[in-house]
Amino acid sequence: MLEVDHLVTGYGGVPVLHDVSLTLNAGEIVGLLGANNAGKTTLINSLSGMYAPMSGRIRFEGHDVTAMTPKQRVEIGIIQVPEGRLVFPDMSVRENLLLGGINARARAHRPRTMDHVLELFPRLKERLGQNAGTLSGGEQQMLAIGRALMAEAKLLMLDEPSLGLSPLFVQYIFGIIDRLHAEGLSILLIEQNLNLTLRHAQRCYVLERGKVAIEGASDVVKDDPRTRRAYLGL
């Protein structure tokens, strides 16, 4: 479904990602692991079109999307849940969710998608009229995921969904991720939490200093001694 081919991305001419290749099959959860500064967020932001790559190709469902703007990518179903949640604090939960579905493809089905999202996150239903800024961190994460689902994501890219959450909420969020996976959604999961990601993803890539250091089925990556090393940055 997603093929990233020899991607090089950088800021101001200095490459951060060197020659990264990655594939994600439809209906799969793929984990993207790595220490701080490994280039995980740069990769996800390149996939959502925030940065133009210096070289390489990105293909989605067989189409070349390398030159597409972020808006066009949202319209074909590549949706990102940005790191740190980033809800719109001065708007109500309902407004946040509705704004998730502003792209041309999703707009017409907003009421139906909204029902589905509220069924996934009953907590949001109780808080529909409340300003998003007043929600707890975990609730904001639910809202950020709910907002991405409102866009009728085909590929959902989650950037550190466990960041700053209590263990209970982390468990809950990963339960939701499993459920979305069971519904057939393709998910790219960026995480610092190694064990959690290895448990939920079928395959993983470990990034190290902007390069893919290890890739393979989660079990294989888990037992590879280099994984721990990449994490400690040795």
Binding site: S48, M50, T69, P70, K71, R73, V74, E75, I79, Q80, V81, P82, L86, V87, F88, P89, D90, M91, E95, L99, G100, I102, N103, R147, A148, A151
Partner: peptide, 23 residues
């Protein structure tokens, strides 16, 4: 109007606005 909502998403968080596909 939608324009008002889009402007507020840009004010609140430009990156999040981009992530939901605001032009």
């Amino acid at each position: 109007a939608p324009l008002g909502y889009y402007l507020r998403t840009i004010r609140d968080n430009e990156n999040a606005a981009r992530a939901i596909g605001v032009n």
